[in-house]
Amino acid sequence: MILTNIESVPGMRIKAQCGLVSGSTVRAKDAIKDIGAGLKNVFGGELKSYTELLSEARNEAVNRMVEQAKRLRANAVINVRFATSAITAGAAEVYAYGTAVEVEPIG
């Protein structure tokens, strides 16, 4: 599965369009990590556990999107966009969406 966030796949030609696909996920860390992050907050700096949370969430959203694209028999998703929002304290939502297409190499 090829993913791009531009409107084509360089070096490939779009054969058919399969429609919009999307995936979203809301994830939270456990309370112990929340407290640790709260303490880290006093002096500032990177909150590693939350960074990890964000990348896990992003991975999962992309995976769900790819699953959906596979069901539509697409082999690429173009114009992928990410949107994030803070739903409640300590939880992050990542939403990924794009257009599933069928591509073939030029020539």
Partner: peptide, 11 residues
């Protein structure tokens, strides 16, 4: 061709 991402949370 691939999609690359980078994420960070900073307080």
């Amino acid at each position: 061709v691939e999609l690359v991402t980078g994420e960070v949370v900073i307080s």
